[in-house]
Amino acid sequence: MTQAATTAIHDARATFTVTMFQQMADGQVATPTDGAAAALEALVETSADLRAAALLGPGGKVLAASSEGDWESGARELWKAAEEADPDPQQVHVATDDGEVFAVRSPGGNSAVGVAQRFALASLMFCDLRAALRELEPADVPAVSRNGA
């Protein structure tokens, strides 16, 4: 039985260590906006029917948006009008001739607004938007152990 040369292992370890250090942030603290941008990117990649979307913070401030525009006032108007219809709306789905709008609000106050093409699957859209909101608020998700306890 031949023994592997340890020099090769050491070389590999050195290579991987350099790669790992290159992937690590240089002591920078991730901001909520960074998390929102990552969540939005994942949302846009995941959701097939989505045309554009924005993630907004508790004050209605835009954390990340897939396109330019006044998402802040648009989302504020949507939620304000929805609150007139219902005192505590959590989800809004509006279908027009030009497309559909989905909006989801989390208990933490963050909200996600998405514009999709007509006849988009509502359940999937809401599922994707809620997943994006969960990425914004990882601490709110209760920890579940492997045995489900």
Binding site: S67, D70, A75, A81, A82, E84, T96, D98, G99
Partner: peptide, 14 residues
Amino acid sequence: RVFAAAAALIAIAE
């Protein structure tokens, strides 16, 4: 009003 707000959001997306 909800419908008008949604139309504005669609216009932003488009």
